[in-house]
Design a binder for these strands. Structure first.
Lengths: 163, 163
DNA sequence: TATTGTTATACTCTATAACTATA
DNA sequence: TATAGTTATAGAGTATAACAATA
């Protein structure tokens, strides 16, 4: 397979092009509402689902840190964590070192909710499933490798029911 | 490279796993707000940007069809198209066959806005850029192929300034 | 009468400001 | 005094309902 180059021969074969394709697939007509759908399925707002993903990713952490990660005001976090707590997906724990601080962490149900959300977000577009089995395997291998190269590394997908 | 299989040997190497990785990367801390950012950069709401992408994808179409594609009420479309029109990104054209119907289409500025939005959405995560040049090339090739297999086929990314 | 699109209005989600408790 | 989190309130975005024009 020869490398295609030059101004009129197509886009450069690099990571940027690769991710452009991902964006095109993700924003395609069949996918562009996945996130909101996943949130609705869990009875959450988009903001609350974002928070849930972030808590899962960073683990137990102060409310304040969550506000920083989500680029929003602390009061927003109060409301969002209220919603998560009301649904039994997260809980507040007093910090052992600073009595002003409350830590947030996911409950067992919260982890299950995370898995459900990712399952919904992971439904592959038709176009990807039309690649040959071998091509899909190569794609999966490369992307799993990318996950492992992230800093910090991202866990490989958990496609089975729940933890 | 041997194929890894079995219940404890890792996720299956298929399209679903591949797309799960994409979702994990897309929803990662550095990426999960890209869509809103892209909208804000253009001075649009998320809904308006969705509409812009849809109009680009489907081309000139009745307001009603847009409402169907976006799963929302027609009145929402009125408001969104008002916003796009106010920014010179789209325009209403009377249907030649049915005087009740108005067609919506992107202006030249609208197409430029689309390109800007996609450029913003296409910024690859660090993790992808850490793959070797050859791995990135393979990834790009496979994803470009997937785009071409979509129904209807999706245009390869336009990474240069504007049309 | 049925359908397209608009206008008017209410609701949800998010952002801003003032407040309490602790450091 | 400075910081963490909460409460109260206002604003933006979206959805619902009633309406005018055309089929």
């Amino acid at each position: 397979m020869a490398k295609v180059r030059g101004s009129d021969a197509g886009p450069p074969l690099d990571g940027r092009t690769a991710w452009s394709c991902v964006a095109a697939l993700f924003m395609g007509p069949q996918n562009h509402s996945r996130f909101n759908e996943a949130a609705q399925e869990l009875g959450l707002t988009a903001g609350a689902l974002k928070a849930l993903l972030t808590i899962h990713h960073h683990g137990e952490q102060p409310m304040r840190d969550l506000a920083t990660a989500l680029h929003c005001d602390a009061s927003m976090i109060t409301q969002i964590v209220d919603a998560l707590e009301a649904r039994g997906l997260a809980e507040r724990v007093p910090s052992p070192t600073d009595r002003r601080v409350k830590l947030v962490r996911l409950t067992r149900a919260g982890h299950r909710a995370f898995d459900r959300a990712m399952a919904h977000l992971s439904v592959a577009p038709e176009a990807v499933l039309r690649l040959s089995a071998q091509e899909q395997a190569t794609l999966a291998r490369l992307l799993l490798k990318a996950l492992s190269l992230a800093d910090p590394p991202i866990d490989p997908p958990n496609l089975r029911p729940a933890r």
